[in-house]
Design a binder for these strands. Sequence first.
RNA 1: GGCCCCGUGGUCAAGCGGUUAAGACAUCGCCCUUUCACGGCGGAGACAUGGGUUCGAUUCCCGUCGGGGUCACCA
Length: 549
Amino acid sequence: MDYKELADIIFPNAKEISYYEEKYPERDLPEGAMVTRFAPSPTGFVHIGGLFGATVDRKMAQQTGGIFILRIEDTDQKREIENGVVQIVESLKDFDIIPDEGMTGENSEIGNYGPYKQSERKDIYQAYAKSLIAKGLAYPCFATTEELEEMRQKQEALKIRPGYYGKWAKYRNIPADIAAEKIKNGENYIIRMKSQGNENRKIRHHDLIKGNIDFPENDQDIVIIKSDGLPTYHFAHAIDDHLMHVTHVIRGDEWVSSIPLHLELFHLLEFKTPKYAHTAAIMKEENGGKRKISKRKDPEAAVSYYHEEGIPTDAVVEYLLNIANSNFENWRRTNQDKKIDDFQLELNKMSVSGAVFDLVKLLDISKNVISKYSAEKIYEETVVWAKRYDTELERLLKNDKEYAILVFNIERGNIKPRKDIAKWSDVKNSIIYMYDDEFDNMKEEYAFQKITNKEEIKTILKEYITSYYNKEDTKQIWFDKMKDLAEKLGYAREVKEYKQEPERYKGHVGDISTVLRVALTRRANTPDLYEIMQIIGEERIQKRFRKWF
RNA sequence: GGCCCCGUGGUCAAGCGGUUAAGACAUCGCCCUUUCACGGCGGAGACAUGGGUUCGAUUCCCGUCGGGGUCACCA
C-alpha cells in the first residue's frame, strides 16, 4: 500500500487541492497593495493588544489600496464563548475598524475568499492534509497523551530538547498498510507534518519589524489536524493565508518562535510565503518590572474599558498609532486637521520591544482630541456615553440641550481652547454647578480660599451685586468693575501691587473674584468667571449670592 | 533549562562611529491682565555593566547582568 491509498482511507471525501486553488484565484490589486488580516479567536472581548494589531492591519491595507480581512480562528471549541464573533465585530466597529472582507456578524460575512470562520473550512484543511499525506509529507500518529507525556519526561530526564521529532517521532515512518490497519481497528490518531528540517541547519528570516532573525530549522513533527478533524493554528495559518492571498501577516510577537515551523509548512505545501511583521506586545508596569498587559489583571486591557470611561475612540486610536510609529505625534502636530487615514504608517518604524501602556499619555492625547471638538459634538458624544453609564447626566443634558451647549462652549472655539475634559466621565464634575438643583444639593463646603470671614464675604457679595454687577457689561468693563470693588474694599487692584506692598492691602483683586467664584460655583477653580456669569444670568446669580446676606 | 529577541531620563522615544544625546507625556520653577485649564519660557533627569576594535564608541564585537517571548491535539 502506498501513501496515496492511505490518504484516501483517512480523508475519503476530500477534494483535490486544485479545486481550491482555482476557486480562490490571485487577487487583482494595484502594485504594492497589502492584503492583511486580523484573526482573533472568539474567546471574549477584544484586548487592547488585539485592537492595536487590528489598527495596524487596517491602516496598512487602507494606505496601500489593499484588503483588510477579519478572520475568526475558532478551531478550539473548548475556548469558544457565546456570541464571540459579534463581540469582536462590534468592538472593532466602535473603533471604526470595518473589514473589507470577512466576518460581519456571528454567522454573516462578506468577500469571495470565505468562509472566514475556520470551523467552516474543515474540508479545505483536510484536502491539503490529504495531499501532504499522499506525498509522504504527513502521517497519522497514534501516540496517546500518556505516551507523549512519558516521552517528554524521558527527554527532560535526559536533558534534551523535548518534542516529537527525529527518532522520538514514533510513528514518523509507519508503513501505510500498518497505519491503515490501525485506523480500521478504530484507533485514535491525529495527523502530523513529517518535518524535513534539521536542527543543525540555520535559517535566516527577515521580519518587517524585527529585522533579521536567525533560527535553527524546525524539525518537530507538529500536529496539523487534531483528533476532532480541525486543524491546529499553524496549519490553518498556512492554508488560510495562502488561499486568501494575504500578503502581509501582521501578528503579535509571541509567534516569532514559530517562524521556522511556518516557513517549513509553506515550503512543504509549495505555497509562496507571505511577509511577516511581528508586533511587540503592549506591556504593563508591575513593581519595577514589566509584563504583557493582561485582560484578567488589568482593566485597561479590555477595550470595553475605554467605552466605560468615555475616552473617545479616536483618542485611543491616536494613542495606539503613537505607540506604533513615534513620529505620529509630530505628524499630528503639523497636520492638526487631517484625518488619521492620511498618516502613513510604516512597519519598519515600529518598536522591536514592547511599550509600557501609559494611561496618562492616552488621557493627554484625549484632552487634545476633545479640545478640538465643537460644543455640539461634545454634547452629542457625552449624551451617548451618559445614556449608558450615567443616566442622571443624560437627563440633565437632554433636559435643555441649548443650555448644555452654552455651558460646553465656555472658553471653547478660541485659539487656546480649554483642555480640561479628557473623558466623558469627567464631564459631570466639570459642569454640575451650572445646574441649580444639583448646585443646591451639593454637599461639599464652600471652599473660600483666603477670605473666610462671613461678614467680609457678605459685604463683598452684596456690594458687588448691588453696586457693580450689570449684565450688559462687556468683559472688559466687568473686569474693571471688579478692580474698582477691590479698591473700594481695601484690596489691591493688581496682584503685582499687592505683592510689592502686601501690608498696605487686605488682599488683592484675585481674592475678591475668588469669593464671587466660590459663592457662585462652590469651586475655587473654574473656567472664565465672566462667561459663567453670562450663562447663569442675573436672577440666578442673585439667588446664589443671597444665601450669604 | 534550550532556542529567539531586547536593554537611551519615571514612561514613550529620536539617534545607526565624532551630537551641547532631539522631541512628547509626567515632574519642578517663572511668566501669561482674578482661580483653574490652555499657552510661553526655563530647570532637574538617560546611553545597564565589564572587556575589546578604533584616533574616537550610545552607536560595531564578546562576556556579564537585567527584561521579554516560546518550547500543547491553545491560539
